[in-house]
Amino acid sequence: MEDAIVLRDLVVDRGRRRVLHGISCAVPRGVVAGLLGPSGSGKTTLMRAVVGVQVVGGGTATVLGRPAGSADLRRRVGYLTQAPSVYADLTVRENARYFAALHGRGRADADRAIADVGLGAAAGQLVGTLSGGQRSRASLACALVGEPELIVLDEPTVGQDPVLRAELWSRFHELAASGVTLLVSSHVMDEAARCDRLLLIREGRLIADDTPDAVRAAAGVSDLDEAFLRLIRASETGAGVAAGAGGEAS
């Protein structure tokens, strides 16, 4: 089966600044792919390009076999923005039902999505009265409710308690097991270990694209944090302690 996401030499400029410097990678279907990198490295821009809301300066982004942003992808791709984008003056349930309805889904689907993110007890509450973590889960429910084939999540677990974070990750893996592809950004390295594949991005360049085990092996250390540090240093000096894990290796 074709890959869920294929990027070829993707270039994005913002103003005069180049944010993505020709990124090429492929994410197979049915995996949880982690997009990792420090703040400002271009994670959000890359996700926006995949969803098709980013003006692209060069290269191509192909999603589920179609150019990113194609009209028919709008019912097949779910997107969670970094800042919770739900209506603060509606309840959690009203938000979920609205986004469900946009995707042609019913009330039962909305209620299931709310339960999946652990907000069942707060379903009748106005989003504006929720805590930050609850609000971002309400936003997550609205991204899951359309049962998309590709789910793009920009830092979905920030501010969540550890138990809930573990629950969300197991939910992500359940979805992947059912054939859904997830692209999840994070800057927390302990989440990297939970991904099936890792994309490490720094200053708009991809410096690793592999499984967590392969990344560890390439760097020669067991700690992912340390492995990333070595890959970053290697990419900066241009020397190849991590030749196998750099660029488009798979």
Partner: peptide, 10 residues
């Protein structure tokens, strides 16, 4: 950001 999100839906 709700507008951007809406424009990624049908």
């Amino acid at each position: 950001g709700t507008l951007e999100r809406l424009l990624t839906t049908p």
